[in-house]
């Protein structure tokens, strides 16, 4: 069951919590995938949410996860950074590799993992703090309290989230005073401030108007130069617009098709996918 990569686990990864920049070249030579699931199944009690999912997610690409409600999209996303650990009835079977290291191994620290695999949620959820403190929050938890260092990191993150020009003059204002679209970009700034490698986005634009959603889509296009983005979306046109790869899950948590986005939307191999994306449900 284990891959070649797991036969030679990366010691650096285990010791320091996924700080493996120096070794990434090796991983990329073996495979372009930064994330791999192998026969991943997730159950909530008796309810199966993911069924034997095997997938490779390429680095510095946008991978869209689409499928009807209840098909396991968000469960898959939460499995990647072990957010499912918080759900008591959740049982995970199979492997999920990040840089060739199974994130479900006993020696993996979930907090360190989430530092490398950040997440942005459906509804913008800034903390009731200033814009500055929202972005600096994760950095302070990491123990970075040098003011100059923090100032630079906050500016870098806000620029990375395409928000700096709009808020640079009001960093002490509450994050809750921003518009919905700005709040979501603030959450993205917060997520990238800790310098993750992967950004998981769970329907990040579903609560936004088309203009704000468009800004997030543009931002994703820029983010992917530095990060790997995995996005769950119900908006198939959005998936088609912004992603390089598309995975289609159908009811029962089955990964039915995974291919280049253009192929999925132009000529899907599975007739169930064709029926789903064209709106004909059998």
């Amino acid at each position: 069951m284990s891959s070649n990569m797991t036969d030679t686990p990366d010691e650096t990864l285990i010791e320091t919590g996924f700080e493996v920049e120096a070794d990434r070249t090796h991983e990329q030579t073996d495979t372009e995938a930064i994330l791999q699931s192998e026969n991943l199944s997730v159950n909530y009690g008796d309810e199966q949410a993911l069924d034997d999912v095997t997938i490779e997610i390429p680095e510095n690409r946008v991978t869209a996860i689409i499928g009807p409600s209840g098909c396991g999209k968000s469960t898959f996303l939460r499995s990647i950074n072990r957010m499912n650990d918080r759900i008591r009835s959740c049982a995970v079977d199979g492997e999920l590799y990040f840089h060739g290291k199974n994130v479900y191994d006993d020696d993996v620290d979930p907090v360190a993992l989430r530092r490398k695999i950040g997440q942005v949620f459906q509804a913008p959820n800034p903390f009731p703090k200033s814009i500055y403190d929202n972005v600096a929050y994760g950095l302070r938890i990491q123990g970075r309290d040098d003011e100059v260092d923090l100032d630079e990191a906050v500016e870098r993150a806000l620029r990375g989230a395409a928000l700096w020009d709009e808020v640079s003059h009001q960093l002490d204002s509450s994050g809750l005073d921003l518009s919905g679209g700005q709040q979501q970009r603030l959450c993205i700034a917060r997520a990238i401030a800790t310098d993750p490698e992967v950004l998981l986005m769970d329907e990040p634009t579903s609560a936004l108007d088309p203009v704000a959603a468009s800004k997030i889509e543009d931002l994703i296009d820029e983010l992917v130069e530095k990060y790997t983005v995995v996005i769950v979306t119900h908006n198939m046109q959005q998936a088609a617009r912004i992603s390089d790869k598309t995975a289609v899950f159908l009811t029962g948590g089955e990964l039915v098709e995974y291919d280049d986005t253009a192929t999925v939307f132009e000529n899907p191999a599975d007739s169930r996918v064709e029926d789903y994306i064209t709106g004909k449900f059998g």
């Binding site: 198939m236 088609a240 132009e266 000529n267 064709e274 994306i277 064209t278």
Partner: peptide, 9 residues
């Protein structure tokens, strides 16, 4: 309708 797949073709 923003058709896709076979409908788009």
């Amino acid at each position: 309708q923003q058709p896709v797949a076979g409908d788009l073709r």
